[in-house]
Design a protein around this nucleic acid. Structure first.
Length: 427
RNA sequence: GGAGGUGUCGCCUAGUCCGGUUUAUGGCGCCCGCCUGCUAAGCGGGUUGAGGGAUGAUCCCCUCUCGCGGGUUCAAAUCCCGCCACCUCCGCCA
């Protein structure tokens, strides 16, 4: 959410900034609603103050045994006025709030303009491996190696689901374990959050209202879980851990990581280039998150990007890091770097991590604040998150980039101990 | 799922039956000051959060905030209804 005070003071600037993110941004309706809200608020409040005084006076006089009929009538009239005005107020406030919730974050000045084509590659690591004459694609490799059962997966859940089997499942687990150990070594706290969240959590993290239809919602008939939705990313859960809290600056930066599956509807986005495990309704991801002060947030972003990159590097996978353009990045974020791994069969780079800087956008929605030591009042904290990492594209990258002429796959060094083997061979 | 209980400004707590001189009591903790060779103790003051107004800025003024949302009333922490969370017990279940 954007500070309403900033919109009041610099509406044209805010409008200009937000136009970089979307075409349909309008500021004027917000200013109108805000003006009307304050106007009504002042009237309602002064009427309430008046009634409050009258009520006290009535209390005093009744205590003294005096007649208060006239004062009571007067107070009733004021009450009627309050009712009328607050009825209008209770229409204006949700309207204003809804308009504010729909505004994207203001992009950082470093963010390039435009859509996808504006993305800037800032770093590339490694090289495209030479795979000889007939390299196999990941679906072929995973099938031959018995890592993924695509067909039976669709039997269970339909299109967009698969089953990791045998070494495939072990590979997933080894990856998650590897990431967890790395984060623990860097001082991050491990959390395993619920996979079902309430709607308030969705709005606070900035997923709603924009992506309301992109997540799975539990129907109201599911008693006890009505109004819950499946997490599209652990970010949504982690942010809400401290919703409505005031943090102690001595505790910050708070560094957490979580492992969860991510559930996404991905409606209408099935492509042949994204068959296999490239895009599905459920994938595994370890997510890093930081809650910090504004002063700490530049360093936090650097750290998260570096950590994500280091993980891909330790797996020995060719990848690149891109600074996303204003319209390609998530609307809740001021700045986003994507770490993309090379998938030879698609001849393209696919996102395995998104490192994002929300600034105070999420904190404002979630009302997460802190108090500077020795100072009055509160300020919003900054939040950042980065995948570390998502597995569903790493497995294709690993099997394709590490495939040998004989159809076997060399296991990345950090995973060998867990798997108990250096090479995966067709059975 | 059922029955009963609980929910007060960081923590603990008074107030709720019987609505109004409550600006929500007191303690702990914390902050500032005084006192003091130093520390402790002692003394004095401050200490929920949000929104709005006014202002060069501070001081200041108003409204809301006693789990959340409605209702009754001139007036609600207090009465009524719904919901949520926690505790105790029962039932069901992996």
């Amino acid at each position: 959410m954007i500070d309403i005070d900033l919109i009041r003071k610099r509406p044209d600037w805010v409008h200009e900034q937000l136009r970089k993110r979307a075409d349909d941004v309008e500021i004027e309706p917000i200013l109108d609603a805000d003006r009307r809200r304050r106007e009504l608020l002042q009237q309602v409040e002064s009427a309430r103050a008046e009634r409050k005084q009258l009520s006290k006076e009535i209390g005093r006089r009744r205590g003294a045994g005096e007649d208060t009929t006239q004062l009571q009538e007067e107070s009733t009239k004021i009450g009627d006025r309050i009712d009328t005005m607050s009825a209008e107020l209770s229409e204006v406030e949700p309207t204003l709030n809804d308009l504010l919730l729909r505004l994207p974050n203001i992009a950082d000045e470093r963010v390039p303009a435009g859509d996808k084509e504006g993305n800037q590659v800032v770093r590339t690591w490694g090289e495209q491996p030479d795979l000889g004459d007939k390299p196999l694609d990941h679906v072929e490799l995973c099938t031959r190696l018995g890592l993924v059962d695509y067909e039976r997966g669709t039997k269970l859940g339909g299109r967009g689901f698969w089953i990791y089997t045998g070494f495939g499942a072990m590979l997933e687990w080894a990856l998650v374990d590897f990431f967890a150990r790395e984060h623990l070594a860097d001082g991050y706290t491990f959390v395993l959050p619920p996979h079902l969240l309430n709607e308030e959590s969705g709005y606070a993290a900035g997923q709603f209202p924009k992506f309301y239809d992109d997540v799975f919602h539990l129907e109201p008939t599911d008693r006890g879980a009505a109004g819950l939705f499946l997490i599209p990313t652990a970010e949504t859960a982690i942010l809400n851990i401290y919703r409505d809290e005031i943090l102690d600056p001595a505790d910050m930066p708070l560094k957490l990581f979580a492992y969860t599956p991510c559930y996404r509807r991905e409606a209408g986005s099935h492509r042949t280039a994204e068959r296999g495990t490239i895009r599905g309704h459920q994938f595994n991801k370890v997510e890093m998150f930081q809650f910090c002060t504004p002063e700490q947030s530049d360093a936090a972003l650097e750290e998260l990007v570096e950590k994500s990159e280091r993980l891909v590097q330790k797996l020995g996978l060719h990848h690149r890091t891109s600074l996303l353009a204003a319209r390609d990045a998530s609307a809740a974020m001021a700045l986003t770097y994507d770490i993309e791994v090379w998938i030879p069969s698609i001849a393209d780079y696919k996102e395995v991590s998104s490192a994002s800087w929300a600034r105070d956008y999420q904190a404002r929605r979630a009302r997460i604040r802190y108090r500077r030591t020795g100072e009055k009042g509160t300020e919003y904290i900054h939040t950042l998150n980065a995948s570390g990492l998502a597995t569903s594209r790493l497995v294709p990258a690993i099997v394709e980039q590490s495939q040998q002429p004989d159809g076997s796959v060399v296991v990345p060094e950090p995973l060998r101990a867990w798997l108990g083997t250096d090479v995966l061979r067709p059975s």
